[in-house]
Amino acid sequence: MTTKVLAIDDSRTIRELLRMTLENAGFEVMSADDGVEGVDKFTEFQPDVVITDINMPNMDGFGVIETLRGDSVRTRVPILVLTTESSADLKARARDAGATGWINKPFNDEALVSVMRRVAG
């Protein structure tokens, strides 16, 4: 069974990059344009890993983490946040909300796959 990844980002470019990189690495990828759609797709597809952008319309990445970790969903699926701001601040906030780890944009294939392996095997 392949590992299913849900990629949530409002940038089509980033979504496509994630898809290409992860699919090449053997993951199955589905994507969502914003937090609200992301949470919907999570319940629909039951992915094994979630990658989410932070700054998005409708519901931001923190909202995604809080919803997925919150009482209504309560998942323990790894959630990785994408961030260009590698400021410790944002990462700490994401972690406090329940994020598993982070991926720094711009990412390269190796770094992305390496992070994926640490959280998803």
Binding site: E85, N104, F107, L112
Partner: peptide, 17 residues
């Protein structure tokens, strides 16, 4: 300056295997 470093830093934070 701090933020700029981040923006232009193309080094992956992930591990190099």
């Amino acid at each position: 300056e701090a933020a700029e470093m981040d923006a232009i830093d193309f080094q992956p934070t992930g591990l190099d295997f």
